[in-house]
Design a protein around this nucleic acid. Structure first.
Lengths: 136, 136
DNA sequence: TTGTATGCAAAGCGTTTGCAGTGAT
DNA sequence: ATCACTGCAAACGCTTTGCATACAA
């Protein structure tokens, strides 16, 4: 079975603690803080293994490379900031989408993604100079 | 400006007449019926140019490479068959999605994709043996 | 004639994989 | 002592790009 290596736990906990879906490169950078010599190949291998085991889920959107998040988060959708490109979780689900499909089509699943400005990048009166970026 | 070459018109009309978003490889195959020597590099170059000019739109979903459709189709969403992987247009739009975003987030756009079985690949009573695949 | 568009092949880029060495069990 | 895991580098698949030629204007 799977062995508990420093690499594996560093990769898994990076994703578990991130609070938003992470790119493989972001996982590498975070996990390298715990395991300096960590290679990108191991990140890819472990991310794939963790997805297969059901610990993580791949979030694929709009031509971007896949991001990874804890599978425990349950059904939800995502919001991508058009300025900083980061992806955030959204709670709630529009539901009742099956009627959009053409006649004779069977709907099994759905994906909803919103695009716009995250709280940090939003324009207008709420903008404060010097606001720090959300936890990476 | 853009020159009207055989390659360009073959590529554009392939996408215009397809009836569903096409992958670059599919565009190549269709356009090669009109221009046998057509190269994949030219397909990529022209697809990019046509998107920049506003004639086509790129449809990007779930880790797949981008597909291309006529920009004239207006706002709509897509359905991807989990069996044949083809992508189809859906008319209609759930609307009222902005409330899903976290407080302070500004929604500018949205993307909705349904997954399931297309009419050709649907299970159950409608299935007929020997049914031919829809026009590729 | 002029310069963009093309075809070919090489280069990129993110991801995957073969291999021999490392280290968890 | 095993044998899965790791790092490295080569291999991959898709897309882009450099370059000399072809051809639309």
């Amino acid at each position: 079975m799977e062995r508990m290596t420093r690499q594996r736990s560093a990769i898994e906990s990076s994703v578990q603690q991130a609070g938003r879906p992470l790119l493989p490169q972001e996982v590498l950078q975070l996990a390298q803080q715990a395991v300096p010599g960590l290679s990108i190949a191991t990140v890819y291998r472990q991310l794939k293994a963790l997805v297969d085991e059901g610990a993580l889920r791949a979030v694929q959107l709009a031509g971007d490379p896949p991001r990874y998040e804890p599978a425990a988060h349950g059904h939800h959708h995502h919001f991508q900031c058009t300025r900083c490109q980061r992806v955030f979780d959204m709670h709630g689900c529009p539901g009742n989408l099956a009627h959009l499909a053409p006649a004779g089509f069977v709907v099994e699943d759905h994906e909803v993604t919103l695009y716009g400005r995250c709280a940090d990048c939003a324009p207008g009166p709420r903008t404060r100079a010097g606001r720090r970026r959300a936890t990476a």
